[in-house]
Write a protein that binds this DNA or RNA. Structure first.
Lengths: 124, 124
DNA sequence: TTCTTATTTGGCTATTTAACCAAATGACCG
DNA sequence: CGGTCATTTGGTTAAATAGCCAAATAAGAA
């Protein structure tokens, strides 16, 4: 795996990691309804002010939310609404993989013995 | 936020966390092409055998992949292919939020002053 | 300017995660 | 059975993450 590819997967993982927290997931859904200031989110979350702020900062750094200052408040909004579409699939995972597309692909290398595992294709 | 809701978001976050690692993301895409044994995945990954095995175990526990033992090999396959659909959106995030759906919703609570921040709606 | 409100930053500690190595298990082969 | 292959488990350590508290900003309001 070359460096560029590695960097790509790291970047993708970073985005997912930003989403991979219950509170942040909740806030993302909240922000999907429209922008909210930190204190509004705080009301619904049961955590410290600074904790909420840090979660929002994680989402912002990942590029998932945007922030705009108005007066003394910071208004956060969902920048990339398509992340909401993840939820359906996540529910499918939680439901045990009940898939709408049950045509699972078979083996690509059907009878591969894997003896001295590493002679077939390399870096595919 | 009641306990049930909290548990739901925790569960969702757990699934995302399982995906939120460059190596695991890579392996998921690899398994999307068809099932593979651990040693096949190992070839493409540049990590210890045990490391790869543990990553796979994380994916399995999350319910994202399935495993089947045949002979002395363990064959992993993608159980829930819809996770692949995340990638498009992740790219959009990385591209800076260039969205196909640019109709961002506005404020839900337009002029809310948020003074003594916590008198409006509670637990919504 | 001083006070208050809204939010971020900077520690600090506890928990989780990742990676490697070494040892254990499980299945086939001779 | 004893060996070897494929994989998992356990142990250890380093690094990342999450949470809270307290202090620092930033913007009005008095």
């Amino acid at each position: 795996m070359d460096e560029g590819k590695k960097a790509l997967y790291h970047a993708r993982a970073r985005v997912l990691k930003a989403l991979a927290h219950p509170t942040r997931l909740w806030m993302v859904e909240k922000l999907a309804q429209g922008e909210h200031c930190v204190c509004e989110l705080l009301e619904t979350v049961d955590a410290d002010f600074s904790t909420v702020s840090k979660h929002l900062s994680v989402l912002k750094q990942a590029g998932i939310v945007d922030v705009q200052k108005r007066g003394k408040q910071m208004f956060y909004r969902l920048k990339v609404p398509c992340v909401l579409e993840f939820m359906g699939c996540i529910e499918a995972v939680l439901a045990g993989g009940a898939q709408d597309r049950p045509d699972a692909p078979g083996m690509t290398t059907p009878g591969k013995a894997c003896r001295r595992c590493g002679q077939g294709e390399k870096e595919l």
